[in-house]
Amino acid sequence: MPQSPILFPTSATRLLCTIAVVGALGVSMGCSISASVESSFDVLSSPFESSSASSDGEAVAAFQEETEGFTATYIAAGNTEADSFQKGLSDIASQRGISDWEANPGTWTSIGRGLGQADISEAAATDFAQNLAAGDEQIVALLMQGYADTL
């Protein structure tokens, strides 16, 4: 940190002053608190941020990345239930402001890439895709396209 070496020969001076204040106030020396104080700032800064077009693109990109990661760890852990998987996706999507996650083809290719990252066989990936897509061949194709991208 760009501080004068004359005034700050060691971190001890700063530490002692911090401790004095902390001891008096009993506040945390460690990390940010969120419940009452920082949340107000997050609240005030965020509402205008969430309505921008660039933030929408970022939200979709973040959702797709998280979908990939979620799929990979879900499958790698040996889970196979479609209901739980889809609920997990819905939870992730809602945190990104997305309710109709099925609508975006990127969702399905991201799931496919997650299957690839989970390192399962093509046969197993196809089974999972067929089960998830419930007969929709377009969705199966998108899933397997994502899977193929990881090979």
Binding site: D42, S55, A59, R96
Partner: peptide, 8 residues
């Protein structure tokens, strides 16, 4: 009333 994050 404010939402702190993106929200459905």
């Amino acid at each position: 009333r404010i939402h702190a994050t993106r929200y459905v």
